[in-house]
């Protein structure tokens, strides 16, 4: 097990009766990175996080969180982790401040209350409000504050921006980025692909309990298929593109235009285009969402 890794999972398996939620998951999250964990509902994202916190017990495989086996010493793991559950619930009979003070007391009062006030102010959260009167978005803000308030080494956030308005989503992403800048590792699952694309250093895509892809976010986007549309001043035979590595012709417009699909680097295509009478060139960069969907088609 490496000290460079905040999370290390090998062959993790978890079943609920006949439902196999994790089927031998391998996963590595490096220290001080933001790792986006992507997958549709039921893919195993929440099950993975709950195994890492020893809320549920895997049927096989090994896991290390900050070098600690969560089953052997769950308290040590949880002391260093800030967790935002996907299904966030609070005791209804408390105020926001009461709930935060209670959760802080479970950590031995480690949080600096000045930091808590700063977080609640940035998220526009009224600490005197009763939990039972809060909207879903405001409850989510309480969840974010409790996860961040003790400045954990590792943040595990299950859908952190769900229920928040766009302005608050950006604020939460800023808080996540600031936590990483301060030395924390962030492991978060999300359906919101643009936000993962914006903040994650690396992404992992989970499908049916198995990790099907892990890559640097930019590299994953970069090495995916692109669509290139070229317009020519005079007709060009499309055969000129045959033999260019990674390029396929999708359609042509009487020799004056062509739509190409490019896999991998653009260099060979650009070199070929240099010798042609090009008027304009448009490239459609695929979003992470398109890449993600490609794994499920």
């Amino acid at each position: 097990m490496s000290d460079e890794l905040a999370i290390e999972v090998r062959g993790l398996r978890k079943s609920y009766g006949s439902v196999r939620a994790l089927r031998g998951l391998d996963l590595e999250v490096r220290r001080e990175e933001i790792f986006g964990f992507l997958g549709p509902n039921g893919a195993g994202k929440t099950t993975t996080i709950r195994c890492l916190l020893d809320l549920i017990r895997p049927n096989g495989g090994t896991a290390r969180v900050l070098g600690i086996d969560p089953q052997a010493d769950p308290v040590a793991v949880r002391a260093r982790v800030g967790y935002l559950p996907g299904e966030l619930r609070f005791e209804e009979g408390m105020t926001v401040e009461g709930a935060l003070r209670f959760l802080n007391s479970l950590r031995g009062g480690r949080a600096d209350w000045g930091h808590v006030r700063e977080l609640t102010e940035r998220l526009g959260l009224d600490v005197k409000a009763a939990i039972k009167n809060l909207s879903k978005g405001n409850r989510q803000k309480v969840g974010i504050v409790q996860a961040l308030m003790h400045r954990p080494e590792l943040l595990m956030l299950d859908e952190p921006t769900v229920g928040l308005d766009p302005l608050m989503q950006r604020e939460v992403l800023r808080l996540v980025a600031e936590a990483r800048a301060a030395g924390a590792t962030v492991f978060f699952s999300s359906h919101n692909l643009p936000e993962v694309e914006e903040v994650a250093d690396r992404v992992g895509i989970i499908r049916s309990g198995l990790l099907v892809e892990v890559a640097e976010t930019r590299a994953l986007i970069g090495r995916a298929l692109r669509r290139v549309r070229v317009h020519f001043r005079e007709p060009v035979e499309v055969e000129v593109f045959s033999g260019v590595p990674g390029v396929a012709v999708l359609s042509e417009d009487e020799g004056l235009g062509v739509t190409l699909q490019v896999e991998g680097e653009m260099g060979p295509l650009i070199r070929r285009l240099a010798s042609l009478p090009v008027v304009s060139l448009e490239t459609e960069r695929p979003s992470l969402e398109e890449i993600f969907l490609a794994y499920y088609q």
């Binding site: 709950r50 916190l53 809320l55 308290v75 040590a76 949880r78 002391a79 982790v81 967790y83 559950p85 299904e87 966030l88 619930r89 609070f90 959760l103 479970l106 950590r107 031995g108 969840g143 409790q146």
Partner: peptide, 8 residues
Amino acid sequence: DLILAHPI
């Protein structure tokens, strides 16, 4: 779930 995610 939230309570047991704390060091208790």
